[in-house]
Design a protein around this nucleic acid. Sequence first.
RNA 1: GGCCCUAUCGUCUAACGGUUAGGACAUCACGUUUUCAAUGUGAGAAUCGGGGUUCGAUUCCCCGUAGGGUCACCA
Length: 436
Amino acid sequence: MSERKIITRMAPSPTGKFHVGSARTALFSYLFAKKHGGEFILRIEDTDKERSKPEFEENIIDSFSWLGLKYDHFYRQSERTEIYKEHIQKLLDSGNAYISKEEATEGKRGEVIRFKNPNIKIKFNDIILGEIEVDTTDLGDFVIAKDVDTPLYHLTVVVDDGLMEVSHIIRAQEHIANTPRQILIMEALGFTRPLYAHIPLVLAPDKTKLSKRHGATALLDFKDMGYFKEAVINFLAFIGWNPGTEKELFTMEELIHEFSLEKVQKGGGVFNIEKLDWFNKQYLLGKSKEEIILGIKHFAEVPEDILDRAWPTLIERIHKFSDLKNENLTFYNSLPSYETRDLIWKNSDEYQTKNYLKDLISILEKANFESVESVKSSVFDYAEEKGRGDVLWPMRFALSGLSKSPDPFTLAYIFGKIETIKRLEAAYKKISEIVS
RNA sequence: GGCCCUAUCGUCUAACGGUUAGGACAUCACGUUUUCAAUGUGAGAAUCGGGGUUCGAUUCCCCGUAGGGUCACCA
């Protein structure tokens, strides 16, 4: 359609932590540019001196770098005041804007610069939504700057998109209402009109726009919770877009290759954290031992020496590393404390259990602890003979002290012979006390 | 309220006029299992309502209804 070089941009304002919804917008913008061999711009919209904060700009930059969204150009609007000044003057000179005397009230100045609204109908063709027509009369003569040195959003956006030759404005649907007035300014300034693609909103479970009041919404919170960036990207890409095939797992490269604005949904999509967890689990399963151990160490305290054997078990029941915090893992570090009676399986009794424990100790003293399987094979015949639950439950309980835990063979393998025997002996001693 | 947008399982979605309306997440059941988890198999679950157009509408049009966005000297 357009023969212009493809240039997209993400233009966040540093007035809060970078949001997952914004991250999704940035991702789409990035994917589209890269798919077409174009450029992607990150532009910090910090004209509001009161609300803009350096730490939020830093948060935006960190967010981009975590996700691996590399931008080809970086701008900061606060450094472009002269440029805006020129254009405001141009508008003033051409009669498209004027200095307006206002009633100076609290927080408002007595003089602002307003755009002279021609009161026409503006029609634009949104790539996702189709044709949209709005009568700009309702907009009135809107304010574009407080004074020549203090430009406001609509003016700066138009000037920058024009000067930076942005070809496709890909932004959230909440900006639809802004589009007509920006087109008005754009035409007054003589810039080439870009193409628009307003992408659907990311919604909270209550179907309203996702915001701070809906729990974790800052992108980097997800990093802190131990989610993988691949999972977050994959998940975010699937809110409002899908490839039309049944493939669900996509790398960034594959997304770049497959992405198209035509397949973007019109309506908003709920941020379904359970699906994110599922994506994360898929990526977790594909991670290297080193990466996994690193993640585990970050969120849980498990003795270094058993990690080498315990890691596959530790990630079995989690979706993301922070889930480890909800697991009871203290038994890995020290001898578990438990009620002696809990050692006894269903219909078994303390006398039998005591004997099982004793036999288990002698069997395991001769056992091979090379693998889970070798432990299992040494114990299993005995367990079969006496009753699986009767033998295996006390063995597992002696090792973990928990009614829910990994199986006894795995536990024994993780702990090794010495620690395993030690725990079984402790259990034997406990049960001996109530038997005698 | 004005303006604008949207509408398929609970959720993310497929279908580009003709399908037993497909998949995924979640849920449930069953199998496996000493427990939990994992895993395997299977099940339930949707076209907002009403009119058209058409031989035929999830699909196209209109009207309702519902939901959302936006109405700053913020971005």
